[in-house]
Design a binder for these strands. Structure first.
Lengths: 253, 253
DNA sequence: GCGGACAATATTGTCAACAATCTAGGTGGC
DNA sequence: GCCACCTAGATTGTTGACAATATTGTCCGC
């Protein structure tokens, strides 16, 4: 160890964990890993809304005990990514139409504020980072990798939140961005990608030029675009359960 | 800490629980009761920032087992009302100066949006409800009951969020409002009440008249007012530990 | 055949004992 | 006298067994 710092903090002991397989009392890291994995699975739309997440199955999959699983599921529940029904279990959240509309309204409010802030404090380094991200996103879509494209598209909004420098709003947007794929999957009308790519670069450009109002307008239009794609799905779900459509039959109305 | 503030309505099944000792599988309600009690304790500033919340003590106070306590503490942690340090325990959150500023900035963004929405959809019944609340608040302050006044003052902002009809933004504001007392207690400069009462009624009036921009301006001024009171505390904490000020000596700078 | 009661299974919820870790107080060496 | 070390108590973290509940499949009466 480092002899220069005698009272060095305990650090991590991660080397041990790699050698011995498992360091005692490593639940904290396991929980983090598990939470991120489940969260990303929701973001990637690999977990369909309504699917049940059984404790024992997760415990086996992640090689942890049920207590830790329950703790992680509790976190996911307060992030509203899953719903917990007493004595029934936890299920991937299925946002209602009202919730879906509220999520988009909240995103418009928060992202507009973030864009405004970012225009004011814009640092060249941050803008370059966003530009690079958008280019990777466009490349992914062009090469047909829809999953990577969607992931980078989501990353665009998360990066926007981080660069604006307000950790509270960033956390809120993080939650909203994570819930959006659930909404899309619940009420998807068409199969077009979630975010139109050129809109992202247009927003960056407006920020770079310092035109805050234009950037806000573009962002709102961007989110409206996405929500508009779901409107048909909203209407379909407003009627009784659309079992016919789910079975591939002709729409009831 | 006192668990005697359970005056929240015990609701159903309480008779059984009093007679038979405990109805089986009532943990869900217990958890809710416990969460609300702790949350209100933070709102009322009865739990000072930095105080440790020991699991066994809470389990004894609420007559539940430690597993349930841990679940509730996990929820409080994701609401950022407490901090969890591994192998150390959970402590009432002590917001940093940066977090405090971000909380106020976020409140300005969200409450401005809520005020705008509320002005558009304003229903007479809701306005009357707000008016009645403000009057109770003013009465409480006039009668010298600062605690009730603060509680009603907080309730004003929560009611505003509910009436605007966006549950997502309402939940966000709920979290921010709950964290604000922690900020105030951590950096309080003066002992004046958190909210100037006449400002509340002025905001309601602007909403009732339908003047959205004026209502937004008043709300922003209201929040700036509150934040300004803490600025001296922010500056004091920004330097190295303000031991001089804490001992009542002249400020070092 | 059909509907409702019943039993078998799976799943969640609860609990207490045990292990790991931190904190505080004392003890000995220098 | 002071600092490192070490032990003892308190606190958090983990585990497995058990209880309560929901779900599914089965059987019986009609």
């Amino acid at each position: 160890m480092d002899a220069s710092s005698l009272k060095s903090p305990p650090q991590d002991a991660s080397v041990e964990s790699l050698v011995l397989g498992k360091t005692p009392r490593a639940g904290s890291q396991d929980a983090e890993r598990m939470f991120d994995t489940l969260r990303n699975a929701v973001l990637d739309q690999r977990l369909p809304p309504g699917m049940q997440l059984k404790e024992q199955a997760l415990a086996d999959a992640f090689k942890v005990n049920r207590a830790l699983v329950r703790a992680v599921l509790a976190r996911l529940e307060s992030a509203r990514l899953v719903e917990h029904r007493p004595n029934r279990g936890v299920f991937v959240a299925t946002p209602t139409v009202a919730e879906a509309r509220d999520i988009f309204a909240a995103r418009r409010v928060i992202e507009a504020a973030l864009v405004r802030t970012l225009t004011a404090v814009a640092m060249p380094a941050g803008l370059a980072e966003m530009q690079a991200l958008v280019e990777r996103e466009q490349a992914a879509y062009r090469s047909g990798d829809m999953r990577a494209g969607l992931r980078l598209s989501v990353e665009f909004h998360r990066l926007l939140a981080r660069l604006a420098g307000n950790s509270v709003l960033a956390n809120f947007l993080e939650e909203l961005v994570a819930r959006t794929p659930l909404v899309v999957l619940s009420y998807k009308g068409s199969d077009t990608p979630s975010c139109a790519l050129d809109e992202h670069s247009a927003i960056i450009e407006a920020i770079a030029v310092g035109d805050a109002e234009r950037a806000v307008t573009l962002m709102n239009a961007h989110l409206n675009h996405l929500e508009a794609k779901l409107e048909s799905g909203f209407r379909a779900a407003s009627g009784e359960a659309d079992i016919a459509a789910m079975l591939g039959l002709a729409p009831a109305r």
